[in-house]
Amino acid sequence: MKLSVNGKTVNVDDAPDTPLLWVIRDSVGLTGTKFGCGVAQCGACTVLVNGEATRSCSVPVGSVAGKHVTTVEGLTKGDTLNRVQQAWVDAQVPQCGYCQSGMIVATTALLAKHPHPTDAQIDDSLTNICRCGTYDRIRVAIKKAAGAA
């Protein structure tokens, strides 16, 4: 089947019930999207599907045919970070970094919907897990990115 990932059309031969996550990682070869739980609990695998934050471990690839998938790699233009990524660097958010692709993609979707999110909106939409506990800085970075909008 044909997939649109980060604006490029790619051909994959995975079975349609294969989770989008594994197609992105193993067939498309983009490894920024991470596997954390496989059951839509942690958000490490978050990508945008037509702009919506989506936990790719729990979405069959067959269901995204014809839709636009954006991964963390697709947020940068050349070497230029998007404002969320830049805020993450400025606030020195990542520790191990493993959860951060999902956090950044989820925040990008949040700010598209709510350019100046309240704490409650942040709590509701950023339900991803960071085992390193970078939450304080994530909140700071989200607000920084919102301010830069």
Binding site: T31, K34, T71, E73, L81, W88, P94, G97, S101
Partner: peptide, 27 residues
Amino acid sequence: VKRLDIRDKVDGRAQFGIDVVVPGMLY
């Protein structure tokens, strides 16, 4: 001092063990 690994950890390029790809690799 700003951490030197942070830039790699915001755009997916940091390589974790799970991201390793070796020619001819099976899973």
